[in-house]
Amino acid sequence: MTTILFIEQVLNGLGYGFMLFLLAAGLTLVFGIMDVMNLAHGSLFMAGAYVAAHVHSRTGSFVMGVLAALAVVLVAALLLEVFLVRRLYGRDHLAQVLATFGVILVADDAVKLIWGAAPIMASAPAALSGPVELLPGLMYPSYRLLILATGVLVALGLYGLVNHTRVGMLVRAGASNRRMAEFMGVRVGQVFSMVFLLGAALAALAGALMGPLTAVQIGMGEEILIPSLVVLVIGGIGSVRGAFVAALVVGMVDTIGRAFLPLLLRSFLSPALVSDLAPAIAGLATYALMAGVLAFKPAGLFPARG
Score class of each variant (00 low, 15 high):
R144G: 07
F183P: 05
M1A: 13
M290S: 06
G157C: 04
A285K: 03
A24H: 05
I281M: 10
G199N: 01
P136D: 11
L134H: 14
A95P: 07
I7K: 12
F62M: 04
A25S: 14
E222G: 09
L264C: 03
V73W: 07
L161S: 03
F83N: 00
A124E: 15
W115Q: 09
G90N: 07
S61H: 08
L148W: 06
R187L: 09
G26N: 06
L27Q: 03
T100D: 09
H56R: 10
V191E: 06
V85Y: 05
L128V: 04
V245M: 13
A53T: 06
A200E: 07
A118I: 08
L145S: 00
D254R: 15
F83V: 11
S142F: 07
V73A: 08
A25L: 04
V111S: 04
L44R: 07
V188G: 08
L197D: 05
V231C: 04
A52L: 02
Y89W: 15
L29V: 08
S123N: 11
R172N: 00
G157D: 01
M34V: 04
M194D: 01
M64I: 03
L261Y: 05
V82S: 03
E81T: 06
A47C: 08
R87G: 15
G189P: 10
P298I: 12
S228H: 04
M64Q: 12
G13Q: 12
L94C: 01
R178I: 14
A206L: 13
M220L: 15
P136N: 12
V30D: 05
V162P: 01
F296K: 12
Y50I: 02
K112A: 06
T2S: 12
F192S: 02
S193R: 15
L5D: 15
H54Y: 15
M139A: 06
P141W: 07
V132Y: 06
G157N: 06
I104G: 10
V162F: 09
A280V: 00
A40R: 14
G185S: 10
